[in-house]
């Protein structure tokens, strides 16, 4: 089933705890996805750091990862979340080199995301675990979008949890509720083109399709529209980049999402109740229609 949702503030001076709102929205859709919870956070990043998230299925591997990151660059902040490592590092090299180096440490260690503005955090179970490890509630930036996962196609672990990115590509995170039925076909065609996949999750094909289409010259919005045609199955997904975010619905409108927007914020959720509990208001919501793509600029 899975649930997706989160909040975006139109102004940097919004005076609200974005993380607390995202917490309530994700808690409200916990029953749609009790296996794991993840969020993508947007940071202003005045210091020019690189945000790195690493899946670590090897118990106690966090130390090795942080040591390796500190050799590649300088670790400024880091949290070993016991299964998922979060770090912000001063690093001027290529993202691909960094991901190759970390992925080479151990087969059970894979980089989940790298970003200059986007940071991905994941943990098992509900949002309470995520908050206990990474203090989600203290986040007061402009955007926090997440997913509660009900695993269907791949293992319940950190690696296959969402949000998902295209390997070593910064500035894109996707949260997908649904099932891509032509996934195997798409995956093999992208693999032949040279794309590397980091997970066994069918949703990973979405960020890769977006990156592939944009590399061929499509705008982000065009690429989102292309996914509506090329992906088979049912989906509602949220895609976040460094400067915008979008919600995309399949041609059958099989998965729910509601949106609420006012002068201050845009809030999304799979469930109207969770959205309203999130923003603590009986706000009007609307539901994107079949095959629709909605993009908001940051």
């Amino acid at each position: 089933m899975c649930g997706v949702g989160g909040i975006f503030f139109k102004s940097a001076e919004h005076g609200a705890k974005t993380g607390e709102i995202a917490y309530r929205i994700l808690d409200g859709i916990y029953r749609r996805g009790p296996d794991s919870t993840g969020v993508a956070l947007w940071h202003d990043n005045a210091d020019g750091l690189l945000y790195v998230g690493v899946n670590c299925e090897a118990p106690g591997g966090g130390g090795r990862i942080l040591e390796a990151l500190d050799q590649l660059g300088t670790v400024k902040q880091a949290t070993d979340g016991d299964g998922y490592i979060r770090a912000a590092i001063a690093y001027g090299g290529s993202e691909e080199d960094l991901v190759d180096a970390i992925d080479a440490l151990d087969p059970a260690i894979t980089v989940s995301s790298v970003g200059r503005h986007l940071e991905v955090l994941k943990h098992m179970g509900g949002v309470a675990n995520l908050d206990a490890k990474f203090d989600l509630k203290s986040y007061d930036g402009r955007l926090a979008m997440g997913l509660t996962r009900y695993a269907t196609e791949s293992r319940i672990d950190f690696t296959n949890g969402q949000p998902l990115s295209a390997r070593a590509v910064p500035g894109l995170a996707v949260m997908h509720n649904g099932h891509i039925t032509n996934y195997h076909h798409l995956r093999s065609s992208y693999a032949l083109k040279g794309y590397n996949f980091s997970t066994q999750n069918d949703s990973e094909v979405i960020p890769i399709m977006l990156i592939d289409e944009m590399s061929k010259g499509a705008t982000f919005e065009d690429a989102l529209n292309i996914t509506v045609d090329k992906l088979d199955g049912c989906f509602t997904y949220i895609a976040v980049t460094d400067d915008c975010f979008a919600v995309v619905k399949d041609a059958y409108a099989a998965k729910p999402t509601v949106v609420a927007e006012n002068d201050e914020f845009v809030a999304l959720s799979s469930d109207p109740q969770s959205l309203r509990e999130g923003v603590l208001s009986d706000i009007e919501v609307w539901e994107p229609g079949a095959g629709e793509v909605h993009v908001w600029q940051m």
């Binding site: 469930d271 109207p272 109740q273 959205l275 309203r276 509990e277 009986d282």
Partner: peptide, 8 residues
């Protein structure tokens, strides 16, 4: 019925 708050 009060305080329905979009409950299912």
């Amino acid at each position: 019925i009060l305080n329905t708050r979009a409950r299912h």
